[in-house]
Amino acid sequence: MKEIGTIACHTISVIVDNEAGVLARVIGLFSGRGYNIESLTVAAVDQTGERSRITIVTSGTRMVIEQIKAQLDRLVPVHKVGDLTIDGRFVSRDMALVKVAGTGEKRVEALRLADTFRARTIDASANSFVFELTGSADKLDAFVELMSELGLVEVARTGAVALARGPGGL
């Protein structure tokens, strides 16, 4: 289909049965139909472990976003599909683990910046730190960029997890 209209970023929540292959179905749907995935996170979210919540950040025209939701909704193990971007205000967080190695002034500066970003130090050795940082993708990007000057070794990041604001749930 020709892209008509502006492309917007949407955060979509999907409640699925926590069964084998369900993630493959969702990912296969996106790759098979050529939709974008900016990020995708998934984990079991109820006490019994029977249901998982998938949070997908995707982008497309209004028609494409509608298609994505309709296609997700017709997958058999899908309970519910919600578009947080459309349904109202929502909160969204990514998490990153950032390893920085160095000594002397750089080490001190890394720790100082981590404090400014309200990152937690979850591992430390004589010449390295692993920082844990949550926030928006932008904030994480900014932190990682600063660390690249200060002995950045590697980064592990999750995609976004998100919930609607207020008392209502999906």
């Binding site: 289909m1 028609m63 509608e66 298609q67 309709a70 296609q71 909704d73 017709r74």
Partner: peptide
């Protein structure tokens, strides 16, 4: 009957 058939190719 299939929501995904709607607005797929033609609005």
């Amino acid at each position: 009957i299939d929501l995904s058939s709607i607005n797929k190719n033609v609005a």
